[in-house]
Design a binder for these strands. Structure first.
Lengths: 358, 358
DNA sequence: CCTAGGATTGAGACCGGACTCACATCGATT
DNA sequence: AATCGATGTGAGTCCGGTCTCAATCCTAGG
């Protein structure tokens, strides 16, 4: 069913049918009625593809994230799609598995499909040539979660350094000095302070931690920053490693909800209790964190709202409106039960403590 | 940048440029080289919209699910997108919030966008006129998770009645007789055995439960089937309600992972212990279910694989291949720690038991 | 009654590819 | 030298809409 068919049925020209259907131009009541009736009778539906082709607008936005399976992105995506739908846009979703090559490919495909704009959670904040191209070509682009290095692109993210500072202070106040930070971030070399990381987010978090230690006049335990925690098994072994020996960590920070699962599991396997033996803190406030015993202390990020804001910002760009005042999202430290006083305080009281399974 | 531009730059006709670019027809080496060089120089990328328009194929599949935020669908979606990508297809995702009107709209939009096929988790297994239309129009369609009533559409789902029977038997063997089943499914009237439900899935689960009771020669506690558990608050109040009074439930089955969160929370708030006072069982094996104390007994569904299978089945349809042998997915009962012996056994030993918070 | 100006209307261009068709070109057959 | 099939090639159509433009119709003012 095409406009031509409808036109024929309504005994008018294609142009008139198109006008009646598209609700533009001048159409007599008589014609409009006949056309609409014919369209109804033939159950005509316009071909969006054809429409997009000469309007140049596809009413579709492309979203590129690391992994929808991760509830963090799931929720962000939900925010994006909700806001997009409200504004009459659809969403094409592409996964990258945090792989740069996949991201390049994803962006290319979306561009080929002529999406009106892109929301990307950049896999790398360093290697962003492909994103720079998009931005320079003038196609609306918004980043979510992480910045794209020095690209001047609107970015919806929380101030990670700040919340990381706050969280670290919380741990320091509880007496912890040996605080481990575990992340999946892939790096070529082991962590050294000041090294350039692929993820602005992780960089900021580490910076926040360092600032907290510095402010407290304490040395930053850089040996406990463990990156490259890829699969569940490696996370487990890293956790075991970090919690062993005389120099063991007394607190562990999990960089995301997926890591957290394996870390907590590893802690349980070691027969250590939270927070008795090890304090635990994680990024992302997933609902289940309230169900563990004890409930977990987390850093809550307004992920859904960030998704909504990203979509709105993008749509503003697409419609040529000036960018709104940049919303600053703040994460909050939700103190539940998984952070407790450090068991290994210098005081002799800590000596002779036995480790017991719950 | 269009083929015309490339053609001009390469000093050949549009047709020749298109042939060289599209890799079809006969093109001399000389022309091919010049065209490809020109395309490279102009960084030409074909307009997928235009291409789709006259091939009739958009290489895009539409996915309609209740809620991506739900990890169940998140994982399924991941399976779908992975399989789709591998076959060269993209995915447009639409959320319905399990609302039929939204689903109708979603299907309409995807059809307008000329997706090559649709994967739908029908919000209703009863009211499926819009899906029937899709199917009859010949557009490839696959259901996931739930059937579409009597529609003869390929459906990827687990045999719910079977696993529900098995799970119920497990509870019956532990001595439970008062088993509650809580689901978000919206209904107009309270549950009555045999009533038609909007969801084939829930219907099957309840049927499995009833069969288990029947086989054991026990009466099915239909008063404990609680539907319409919409938001977190209503789930909490239903849980409280069900666990109160002399006729209280001694075991609770949560129909999905989202409900489970609120149910467990409510149980904890009541100061009841799992599995001491209440046994608990839920659908979907989310990673966090291993982290609670005790870890939760769950019904694991091969969600990712179902997503993959759905995409593959759809792609077979789209490519005109005969449907593969229908894969039967089986869920498995993962017995962890949340199901224990019934505390209220008829024996007097149960009398005088005190309820203690953990 | 006549005409200017707005309302209607239809023909056709156009978006950017894919593809048909008629017309070369050319070495290989007879 | 005439014929033939296999390649190359360009002009032009088509997909299904949007939109421009010129032509036609009406109606009110003069």
């Amino acid at each position: 069913m095409t406009v031509a068919d409808v036109a024929k049925a309504a005994q008018v020209s294609k142009a008139q049918a198109a006008r009646a259907l598209g609700n533009y131009g001048a159409v007599s009541d008589d014609v409009r009625e006949r056309v609409l009736a014919a369209a109804e009778a033939l159950s005509y539906r316009p071909n969006e593809l054809a429409r997009s082709m000469n309007t140049g607008k596809s009413h579709t936005i492309g979203v590129v994230v690391g992994d929808i399976e991760n509830p963090h992105f799931g929720l962000a995506t939900r925010g994006i799609t909700d806001a997009a739908k409200k504004a009459g846009y659809n969403v094409i979703l592409v996964n990258t598995d945090e792989d740069r090559a996949a991201e390049v490919e994803a962006v290319r495909i979306l561009l080929d499909k002529r999406v009106d704009g892109l929301i990307v959670a950049p896999a790398s904040s360093v290697d962003t040539a492909h994103l720079q191209q998009v931005h320079q070509s003038g196609r609306p682009l918004v980043f979510i979660d992480r910045t794209g290095g020095d690209l001047d692109v609107e970015t919806l993210a929380v101030d990670m350094a700040k919340i990381s500072l706050e969280a670290t202070q919380h741990l320091l106040e509880a007496g912890h000095r040996r605080i481990a930070f575990i992340s999946t971030l892939r790096t070529d070399a082991p962590y050294k302070p000041g090294m350039t990381l692929d993820s602005s987010q992780i960089e900021d978090r580490l910076e926040g931690m360092q600032r907290a230690f510095l402010a407290a006049g304490l040395p930053f335990p850089e040996d406990l920053v463990r990156l490259n925690a890829g699969d569940a098994e490696s996370i487990r072994s890293i956790t075991r490693d970090v919690l062993r020996g005389p120099e063991r960590a007394t607190a562990v920070v999990a960089s995301d909800g997926l890591i957290a699962l394996s870390v907590v599991e590893a802690i349980q396997e070691l027969g250590l209790s939270i927070p008795g033996d090890v304090s635990f803190l994680m990024y992302d406030d997933f609902p289940w964190t309230r169900l563990t015993t004890p409930p977990l202390t987390v850093i809550a990020q307004p992920v859904y709202n960030m998704g909504v804001a990203a979509a709105k910002a993008l749509i503003r760009q697409m419609e040529g409106l000036p960018p709104a005042a940049p919303a600053q999202f703040t994460a909050t430290l939700v103190r539940r039960g998984s952070v407790g006083p450090c068991p290994d305080l210098q005081e002799p009281v800590a000596a002779g403590r036995t480790v017991a399974a719950p």
